[in-house]
């Protein structure tokens, strides 16, 4: 059975979805991810959906659920690399994913997570490259 790998990067978890998510796979991912967060005490989750081209309301709900569950377990969720068509679809479905942070690509998503999580090990050295993710996004 197919499984989506969950990679651990320090205090964060990295999930790259490289196949089209069908319902069971999405449910498994949700369960696995939440379990891993709890096991590893992760402080942030980064979900890369840059190759996902098809999305439905169920998918949208799963992503929203993951974000809410992670929040309860004290981890921030960032969804990165959403394709324009997917974004339009989610909006048309009435799923603006309000609880989820978003970023354009993995790199910026990581910066955003670091800024959000405020770890002692991570000094705020992001200023050097001229980009600083801002905090006004989480309305």
């Amino acid at each position: 059975m197919e499984k989506i790998p969950i990679l651990r990067m320090g205090p964060f978890l990295l999930v790259t979805i490289q196949v089209d998510l069908y319902d069971r796979l999405a449910l498994n991912l949700e369960a696995d991810l939440i379990k891993t967060i709890s096991d590893t005490n992760a402080k942030g989750v980064l979900i890369d959906i840059s190759v996902v081209s098809i999305v439905d309301s169920f998918m949208g709900r799963i992503i929203g659920n993951i974000a809410s569950m992670s929040k309860i377990l004290d981890a921030e969720t960032v969804v990165v690399g959403m394709q324009p068509a997917v974004a339009i679809t989610l909006i048309e479905l009435g799923l603006p994913l309000t609880g989820v942070h978003t970023a354009l690509n993995v790199e910026r998503g990581m910066e955003l997570l670091r800024a959000k999580v405020n770890l002692d090990d991570y000094s705020s050295s992001e200023d050097e490259d001229g980009y600083e993710p801002d905090d006004q996004r989480d309305y």
Binding site: V79, P84, A87, E92, P96, L104, N105, D134, R137
Partner: peptide, 13 residues
Amino acid sequence: MKTVAATRLMGAE
């Protein structure tokens, strides 16, 4: 508002 929300989903403001 839809446009703004879609932009936010893409990770931009």
